[in-house]
Design a protein around this nucleic acid. Structure first.
Lengths: 106, 106
DNA sequence: AAATATACCTTGAAGTACGAGGTATCAGCG
DNA sequence: CGCTGATACCTCGTACTTCAAGGTATATTT
């Protein structure tokens, strides 16, 4: 039902390529600390998205470490559009449920 | 992360007491078909909430069948307040992430 | 030399959600 | 009368998602 981690990753990577460790911090920042996703969530999702062809990876040595930068493919942009729409639908549905005044039943 | 079914049930039962089968249809209505939760989701959640003391049940024979009406306890109202707040936090976080213009990184 | 930060990763468990099925009653139709 | 469809309850097994905890290795700071 949720797919929130996937949505956030796709959204951030649609703006610019980033690496996993960076994405962990970025999600905290961009959601105003409302959502914190650990590395145990981020890395597996990145790998799955890459396998699906939604992301492409590029290894880049920086200092003595290696960073793996991810960016969106066309497929990834499609997926992002789908998930965004889906999210909006769910959000509107729940908002309307929460706001429906007492006694209003179709 | 999600807890959406629980939130919707608590919200509906805060308005008036309802029975399981009715809640299934009600959730479809109140969310404008955005969210459909089957009986396989609803009944287990109702039972769990009752066990937790968030709901109380009342069996009521209607025609030849028996309906189980649920209503909120004080604990259930607390839980509803918590989940509503949590939902708002997540919603705002994701909205801000989705709306952040390209290049805006704290 | 030790601790902290960076950067990658996996594993096992817990939590959530769902579809498919099962029981039984009642109303309507042919 | 038998059949179908709606009402109304329920559970089971499975799948999906998410997470915390741990593991490796290098660079930087103390």
């Amino acid at each position: 039902m949720s797919g929130v981690p996937e949505l956030l990753l796709l959204r951030l990577l649609d703006q610019r390529e980033m690496y996993g460790y960076e994405l962990v911090r970025s999600i905290r920042n961009v959601t105003g600390d409302a959502i914190t996703l650990g590395e145990g969530v981020i890395y597996p999702v990145l790998h799955t998205l890459e396998r699906n062809g939604a992301l492409k990876a590029r290894r880049k040595p920086v200092g003595g470490r290696t960073r793996v930068y991810y960016s969106l493919t066309a497929k990834g942009r499609d997926r992002l559009a789908d998930l965004s729409g889906e999210w909006r639908r769910i959000q509107d549905g729940i908002t309307s449920a929460l706001e429906t005044p007492v006694h209003a039943e179709a």
